[in-house]
């Protein structure tokens, strides 16, 4: 056997070895990786349930804070209740509910609680400011407007659903 043939034969065996090794690794790992990645691929439950929060009659043009309980399904624990709050107000006959979670680092914003008592939402953690419609004030830390809740008004009751990106601001 000449030297050249020996090398190419060895190379061939090396390719075979890589192929078989690849099959072994893939056969073992493919199901496991799918298993681990599965939660990230699952679609979130579309729509979600709407929860009654407050009587529409109570609401004014001034945002007020309302707490409510929202149910989410948490794997093997089943349905879990989480406590959420929302800043809700009426504008032009429309009910608007803003999430109080600051878009900067997730602190809780308050209405008119900054030192100057402006008509703005204020986050005490890093002095973030938002307009009444949730638009972040340029020059303060937050980069995005406050999220809104899905809102539905039925029989004089305000129902809130899932959190979604703010649509009333229109391109921050």
């Amino acid at each position: 056997m000449s030297k050249d043939q020996g090398v190419s034969r060895r190379q061939f065996l090396n390719y075979c070895l890589t192929g078989v090794g690849g099959f072994l690794a893939a056969g073992m790992l493919a199901p496991m990786i799918k298993f681990a990645v599965d939660p990230a691929l699952k679609k979130g439950k579309a729509g979600g349930n709407m929860v009654p929060v407050v009587d529409e009659a109570v609401l004014t043009g001034e945002p007020s804070n309302h707490g409510f309980k929202y149910k989410i399904t948490d794997a093997w624990l089943g349905e879990q209740e989480t406590e959420l709050t929302a800043w809700i107000y009426k504008e032009g006959g429309q009910v608007i509910a803003l999430s109080p979670i600051c878009k900067h680092l997730g602190c809780t914003v308050g209405w008119k609680n900054d030192p100057q008592k402006q008509n703005r939402f204020f986050c005490p953690c890093h002095n973030g400011l938002y307009e009444k419609n949730g638009k972040n004030v340029p020059g303060t830390p937050p980069m995005n407007p406050l999220d809104t809740y899905q809102v539905e008004v039925k029989n004089g009751k305000v129902y809130l659903g899932l959190v979604e990106p703010n649509k009333i601001v229109g391109g921050a």
């Binding site: 060895r10 090396n14 070895l17 078989v20 090794g21 072994l24 056969g27």
Partner: peptide, 18 residues
Amino acid sequence: LFWPNFLLKEWMVAAVVL
């Protein structure tokens, strides 16, 4: 040789087992 000749045989057995 252990690598790649013998290992290839062993891994082929492993592939069948897998």
